[in-house]
């Protein structure tokens, strides 16, 4: 039975996972780089964090899976998209281990990995995918050997909006700013820009509005941080639900899969479920073990690619900060 070790470190989480070819997740260890409240993580510091933790995580993963390096068949890593320094740090370790252990390397697209992990864990066949995280916001459906992007953000990702809003009101970044926003929602809804643009969305104007409201109304006590969190969630999640519904209607699908870190949010899942059930469909969602960036999703996608005969020559194991979801050819799906 083939086993693959996957490495993920494109943002502030460094993870190592091991899966077998039946989809059993033998190990999935992870460490998050947490910065002080009011600050975001920068590429250089994040890369340093990953460099400090990655070898310990490799050992932990092997221990958890009860395997030796020789029992691993291939190493999968995130080729992109993501932050440059963190991506390169992970790739350097993977290249070194591949030579020491004499194993092939599989380069994986981060977005495709989220989708494939979602399909594995929720057993969904051909869903419309809403991929929402700190770095990406896309509505995706599979067609003709590609994961096609039907709609996406035209500026910042929804998770980026949530994280930067958390900085404005100095919410802690532990365990995640998006999680902390979810915990303190209030009751009063404040009007915010609703910027759906056909199948696409825009969030930068919403962030500016929130910064303005925080500067004025919050200072005057006309609203509370809880009200802002509530209004933000209701507004942007409704936008995401709308573009997802439009994609469902366009593609004739009945399943929706939510992946990415923001996919953990239970309010988003609830709103999506209301929409999908009205259309007679099903929502597939996961908890933080698999929604949030992890090594197992890279390992599993690497497994699908490896079994389709895809490996990456050493000279091609570079990283790229931009790697579109529709760039890789999906050779492992027959439909």
């Amino acid at each position: 039975m083939a086993k693959i070790m996957g490495f993920e470190g494109s943002a502030n989480k460094i993870g190592v996972g091991i899966v077998d070819e039946e989809g059993n997740i033998l190990a999935n260890v992870r460490h998050t780089y947490v910065t002080p409240a009011g600050t975001g993580f920068l590429p250089k510091d994040t890369a340093k964090h990953h460099q400090q933790h990655i070898l310990g995580l490799v050992k932990d993963a092997l221990t958890q899976a009860k395997l030796t390096p020789q029992e691993i068949d291939a190493l999968a890593y995130t080729k992109g998209p993501g932050m440059g320094g963190p991506l390169r740090s992970v790739a350097v370790v993977v290249r070194t281990l591949a030579q020491l252990w004499k194993k092939p390397i599989v380069a994986v697209n981060h977005c495709v990995a989220h989708i494939e992990m979602g399909r594995l864990v929720t057993k969904s066949q051909n869903p419309v995918v809403l991929y929402v995280s700190g770095g990406n916001t896309q509505v995706i459906a599979y067609s003709l050997k590609r994961y096609r992007i039907f709609g996406e953000t035209i500026d910042i990702a929804v998770g980026n909006l949530l994280d930067r809003f958390a900085r404005v009101i100095s919410l802690p970044n532990d365990p995640a700013p998006g999680y902390n926003i979810e915990q303190i929602v209030g009751q009063k809804f404040l009007e915010l820009p609703y910027t759906v643009k056909g199948m696409d969305v825009s969030f930068s104007g919403i962030l500016s509005s929130l910064e303005d409201i925080a500067r004025h109304q919050l200072a005057q006590g006309k609203c509370t941080p809880e009200d802002l969190c509530f209004s933000l969630q209701e507004n942007v999640f409704a936008m995401l639900v709308e573009i997802t519904e439009r994609a469902m209607a366009h593609c004739g699908q009945s399943e929706v899969l939510i992946v990415g870190g923001v996919g953990c949010n239970e309010r988003l899942q609830e709103m999506m479920k209301q929409m999908v059930e009205q259309r007679g469909g099903r929502v597939c969602a996961m908890d933080d073990r698999y929604c949030i960036d992890n090594g197992a999703m890279i390992a599993w996608t690497g497994m699908l690619m490896f079994k389709s005969g895809i490996t990456t020559p050493m000279e091609d194991t570079w990283c790229t900060q931009r790697y579109r979801t529709d760039a890789p050819e999906v050779l492992w799906r027959d439909d």
Binding site: Q51, L62, T63, K66, T68, Q70, V92, T96
Partner: peptide, 22 residues
């Protein structure tokens, strides 16, 4: 040098011996 040291650390951790299960 950051990448060099990371590579060297990787070799030190895994280059000498088989890793045994705990």
């Amino acid at each position: 040098f950051d990448m060099l040291l990371l590579t060297i650390d990787t070799i030190k951790a895994f280059g000498e011996q088989e890793q045994l299960p705990a």
